[in-house]
């Protein structure tokens, strides 16, 4: 075990902001490096379980390990330690300041050092956990501009689906985009829900990462079978947004198949006892995203449905 500083910055009073990583070096020969990254958003905790469980397993299998595994359990220690999604006291989402070139604050400096540290890895995996509002099936999200390279790399990770989404200029400030654009492959995992740990999802991803490492020649030993994911483009994903404000109550189960017109949930008004809105699925498909947090406004995302040939 080898805990290292990626970057360290003096805070105003008596403490440093330190981004740390656990560098696990195998006893078997090999030069490849894989980076497991999480904790950009302080309210997303699913990756904490994966970081912990992967380190535990690899610590016992150093003789099978070729090369290096770098685990970055928290890119935003101030957020995760204070139950805050963002960078405390800072306006911008941490995943919108990469590669940290326009340095105006300590946060942008830190972002730049993180990219520098991961740069050159053979594979990096950035684990997110949706947010407190939505529960997600385990999935990999890939920008359409990087799909040709990344989709083949994402198939072994034991996730339910790979969602190839359309490009937007604003997304060029994410960690994944910054890494991919300098030739360091980065896959983005979204799974579970904010402020919770879904152990089953974490175990699946851990297995997926070990399988991927075996296929890359970084890990010896038996390979667990993984399920191939559904691969989808934006064209097959439909969104359900609330048009009324109130209290959302789901009627469909997350991860189930829904039919066109089926009620996914309602927006209730507890003051009057009325139903303000019934939210229906726009098509037959897989309910892969579902609202978890009951308070909704006009516009709040309620669900996403994956249609097409499943």
């Amino acid at each position: 075990m080898n805990i290292r500083d990626v970057v360290r910055v003096h805070l105003p009073i008596g403490e440093d902001l330190a981004i740390q990583k656990n560098r696990i070096i195998g006893n078997a020969p090999g030069k490849k490096r894989i980076c497991i990254i999480t904790g950009t958003h302080g309210d997303e905790l699913e990756g904490q379980y994966v970081a912990w469980s992967l380190a535990r397993i690899l610590n016992e299998r150093l003789d099978d390990l070729h090369g290096i595994v770098d685990i970055y359990p928290s890119l935003n220690p101030l957020g995760i330690s204070t139950i805050e999604r963002g960078l405390p006291g800072f306006d911008l989402d941490m995943n919108r300041i990469f590669p940290g070139s326009d340095e105006f604050s300590a946060n942008e400096y830190v972002a730049g050092k993180i990219v520098e540290d991961i740069k050159g890895a053979d594979l990096s995996i950035d684990i997110h956990a949706s947010n407190i509002f939505l529960r997600e099936l385990p999935q990999i999200r890939i920008n359409e501009k990087t799909a040709d390279t990344l989709v083949p790399m994402a198939k072994d990770l034991n996730m339910d689906l790979i969602w190839i989404h359309s490009a937007a200029t604003v997304l060029e400030s994410t960690l994944a985009w910054s890494l991919n654009s300098i030739g360091t492959p980065c896959l983005v995992v979204e799974m579970g829900v904010g402020m919770r740990i879904s152990k089953e999802y974490g175990d699946r991803l851990t297995t997926g990462i070990l399988t991927k490492m075996a296929k890359m020649g970084i890990l010896d030993g038996p390979v667990m079978p993984v399920f191939p994911p559904i691969i989808s483009t934006d064209g097959y994903v439909d969104y359900i947004n609330a048009n009324q404000s109130g209290i959302f109550m789901p009627e469909a189960t997350h991860g189930s198949m829904v039919e066109k017109g089926q009620v996914v949930g309602i927006v209730a008004d507890p003051l009057t006892g009325h139903v303000r809105e019934k939210l229906r699925s726009p098509m037959n498909g897989l309910l892969f995203t579902l609202r978890e947090y009951p308070v909704v406004y006009s516009g709040s995302l309620i669900a996403r449905v994956l249609g097409g040939a499943l």
Partner: peptide
């Protein structure tokens, strides 16, 4: 609060907006 209090999103980072999208996009 500086941003939209529910999801902490910034209206000035949502332009040109989307009438079927999220609250601050609307």
């Amino acid at each position: 609060k500086r941003f939209f209090p529910v999801d902490n999103t910034d209206i000035n980072r949502m332009f040109p907006g989307y009438d079927k999208g999220e609250t601050t996009q609307r």
